[in-house]
């Protein structure tokens, strides 16, 4: 059977500003396709963060709201409470979600807020030029950890899925990665599942996507995929951490 490649209408045709090999572009597409397949595209509000994906407002072709750095889950809470029937999701980087916005995501999850989060973990602050994130691996060099992250000095990286799945309010938590076509397919399935649960009125869902930042990792796109596989996945194991729907 011939497979026809078609661009989804849920993404605009605006040229993306993402660097070659950046994971954000792939994840945008997965999100758009998941929504399209669920056929709820007319009543969606996406919340873009502060980070490289701050421009996501220009790329998703449904109602978009940009939030302040880290505050997307609070903004999403306000939107969902006002529009309980809409699909509301936040799209957040690791600096945004795991550092400055740690309180917002924990409490949205605690409340079982009926929103979904696509959490893009590239182990670095991409937009500001490659500083250390709370998710930066021990030993990883960044512009603010030039000798590599020192666990004694600034602690070990935070595992968001593991942490949030301990909360009663989280309904579904899964970690996926972009390093292979199989993993990318699984990432889309996970995002779709999170959205599906939300439409069924279930609690808070989060999908963490291990992604790449070739520019600030100082690697080629191919090298960065290998680096993700060899360094990130061992520390951030893939899989479902919680799925109340499967229990």
């Amino acid at each position: 059977m011939a497979v026809e490649y078609k661009a989804t209408q849920l993404l605009t045709e605006k040229p993306r500003h993402y660097c070659p090999g950046c994971g954000h572009g792939i994840i945008h597409r997965l999100v758009a396709e998941a929504i399209e397949e669920l056929d709820v595209h007319g009543d969606v509000v996406g919340i873009s963060p502060v980070g490289c994906s701050v421009f996501a407002n220009n790329y998703f072709n449904f109602d978009m709201v940009n939030a302040l750095h880290g505050r997307a889950p609070a903004v999403g809470t306000g939107i969902k409470r006002a529009k309980p029937d809409s699909l509301v999701f936040t799209y957040q980087g690791d600096g945004d979600l795991a550092s400055i916005g740690a309180a917002e995501v924990v409490h949205a999850a605690m409340r079982g807020e009926k929103i979904s989060t696509v959490f893009v973990n590239n182990a670095i602050y991409g937009m500001t030029g490659g500083q250390m994130a709370p998710t930066t691996l021990v030993g990883q060099k960044t512009t603010t950890s030039p000798n590599g992250r020192d666990a004694d000095w600034c602690g070990s990286p935070i595992r968001i899925c593991e942490m949030l799945s301990t909360l009663e309010g989280t309904y579904y938590v899964e970690r996926v990665a972009l390093d292979s076509p199989g993993h990318i397919n699984q990432a889309k399935k996970a995002i779709k599942k999170a959205f599906q649960y939300q439409m069924e009125g279930k609690g808070y869902c989060l999908v963490e996507v291990l992604s790449t930042c070739p520019t600030n990792w100082s690697m080629s796109p191919v090298e960065s995929m290998d680096w993700l596989k060899e360094n990130m996945i061992p520390y951030y194991p893939l899989g479902v951490f919680k799925d109340k729907g499967a229990e």
Binding site: A74, V75, T77, G78, I79, R81, K83, E104
Partner: peptide, 26 residues
Amino acid sequence: GCFLQAESEVSAINMVYGAATTGVRA
């Protein structure tokens, strides 16, 4: 209507921001 106790004043104002984007009075 909706009353929600936020985790902080920072979150509260951002919840207002979210609700306001939908046009409601918040």
